[in-house]
Design a protein around this nucleic acid. Structure first.
Lengths: 335, 335
DNA sequence: TTGAAAGCGTTACCAT
DNA sequence: ATGGTAACGCTTTCAA
């Protein structure tokens, strides 16, 4: 059962390929009778246009690429799901790649996507990425790109949440609950996302006149082990924190485990609020209070921005999807 | 910065494309001097072979397709991650599609993948899928296919876990802990996976002489709401269950929530064991005892099976990745 | 060593 | 209404 081409149909019917092409695409210039014959033979033999021939002809692939640091991370998985659904509705296929949160793998993924002639790329940068030359090069080559979650502000459209404001809200909420030694657990400080969230945290402290303790700010690698170690170090301080703001889901989970492993109570001894997805919060124990991010909206918006660019819109757009605090059980209910 | 072709290089150097082609691929029949010129110009102008021209020429795309019921489901996400990594190592790209656990969307996804001329497909069927004609058609067209998780035994290679044995082990473990009214929460009974797990459950009960109560067996739609309703119904029985075996992660989570919402204690009032991923169990509260499945191995094995087929191996292989019970905190520790 | 031409599947344009 | 042909980018075969 070989794949059948227009030429095959033409030969079988003893006509010319161009006639077959016209008939198949519903263009006129074909007699009704002949069209019927062509259509029925195409149907019967299972004709499918060869997308590579079409791509070659039009230099268009109806394919986009997606790069994420970890598809298995719930937040990313949901965004990927929305991107894929949105893209499919618009007739695009998605090539999903996983950078393993490493700059080198990320460059490799981008390279493969470019080789595949994707028409656009949606990417969440790896936490390691400090050199943006690979992106600059793509931008210069006029490849449509949209960043999400992590945006180093390098003149590329993006979809992010209101990092500063949400972190400020979280910090205020913790202060309202009586916390005075709030720790900040973040990724690498050079990451804009971390910097912004830390900024919101510091702002809230200053506004309320609560002294900033540098030993309570831990900005290291985003990973379970790193989060575990940092939290344990925090708990070992002469004056340990009475609350933790975790700026990434992994860090929130590891903080929770570290605290539990020390036999401390949440939220009585230490409260936690994290940037964590609904589904994960729902299942954590106690359920972690979190900054609710609308992954579905983020995925859809990201694809829309990409579509704009693919349609020739050159403007750089930054979409901020607003996220806000949802209280669950890892924070004190003082009211 | 337009994409540059061999022809462009040839024109610039005033030579023939075929010479450029030879040089670029390192074939001989090109003078060292000319080769150097060609290579350096290719480098400088950023030449990339056009994969569509290559595909058209060779009828090969170095691309595989993946269809999952829900990429955002942790278990699937991890399998997808492994498939993608393994495929990339082997020089293949992955097109990931999400069937939303619906037969119709699944058929649509397969259609798109076939249109894209993927060289093979790895798929986890939707729970709705009862008509396999779309798969039969692909098989007849000699498209390499590998199923995972859900295998209706229709003569297609697959990677699954030891469903019967693991369910029996789970049931025995619950019986050992003193449970006598064990409920089985499953997907649609027509699904082989559910049937097998139910089989293991029933076998264990019979072996131990524990009467089977049909009112304790709930095989319905796999979804959070359905699991919630079924569990609440179970708890409302005159003689409610003292343990629940949930044959899918979603059902395990919904059972946990239903039980908690009734103010019952886990495991004292009702024990739970579920087919749930490590990561999810780790975060649930109490941590749910689970059947540990090696998603990484499943993903790798699935890709390997696909590779075999893509290399012309026609044999139908069924790989069983062995999974076994891991006790956490949702079961009584009687020993 | 290099060039010329055909072919992969499709479409567009021009001719009949 | 239908046919012929060139073109997309690349490889292959054959000729020079």
């Amino acid at each position: 059962m070989k794949r059948i081409s227009q030429r095959d149909i033409a030969r079988a019917l003893n006509i010319n390929v161009s006639t077959v092409s016209r008939a198949l695409r519903g263009l006129d210039g074909v007699s009704d009778d002949l069209r019927r014959q062509i259509m029925s033979m195409a149907e019967e033999r299972g004709y499918r246009p060869n997308p590579f021939a079409v791509s070659l002809r039009y230099d268009t692939t109806r394919t986009i690429g997606v790069v994420v640091p970890d598809v298995a991370f719930n937040h990313n998985a949901h965004i990927v799901k929305s991107i894929e659904a949105e893209a499919r509705k618009a007739g695009y296929m998605c090539i999903i790649t996983d950078s393993d949160d490493k700059q080198e793998t990320e460059a490799e993924c981008l390279d493969l996507l470019v080789n595949m002639h994707v028409e656009g790329i949606i990417i969440c940068l790896s936490q390691e990425t400090t050199d943006f030359s690979h992106l600059e090069k793509l931008k210069k080559a006029r490849m449509p790109i949209v960043l999400f979650d992590r945006d180093p502000r390098i003149g590329i459209s993006s979809v992010v949440i209101n990092d500063v404001a949400s972190a400020r809200q979280v910090t205020n909420s913790l202060l309202d609950d009586g916390a005075r030694r709030i720790a900040f657990l973040g990724g690498p400080s050079r990451m804009r996302q971390t910097a912004d969230r830390k900024h919101g945290y510091l702002e809230a402290l200053r506004e309320r006149g609560v002294p900033v303790r540098t030993e309570l700010v831990k900005c290291n690698h985003i990973s379970f082990n790193s989060g575990l170690k940092d939290t344990l170090d925090l708990l070992d301080l002469p004056e340990p924190p009475d609350a933790i703001l975790a700026s990434h889901g992994l860090l929130a989970i590891s903080a929770l485990q570290a605290i539990t492993s020390r036999g401390l109570r949440i939220p009585e001894d230490v409260a936690i609020i994290g940037y964590i997805s609904d589904w994960v919060s729902e299942m954590s124990s106690p359920r972690i209070s979190f900054v609710k991010q609308n992954q579905h909206e983020m995925g859809c918006k990201a694809f829309r921005l990409l579509q704009d660019q693919m349609n020739g819109d050159d403007s750089i757009q930054h979409v901020v999807v607003s996220a806000r605090l949802e209280i669950r059980d890892s924070t004190k209910k003082t009211k």
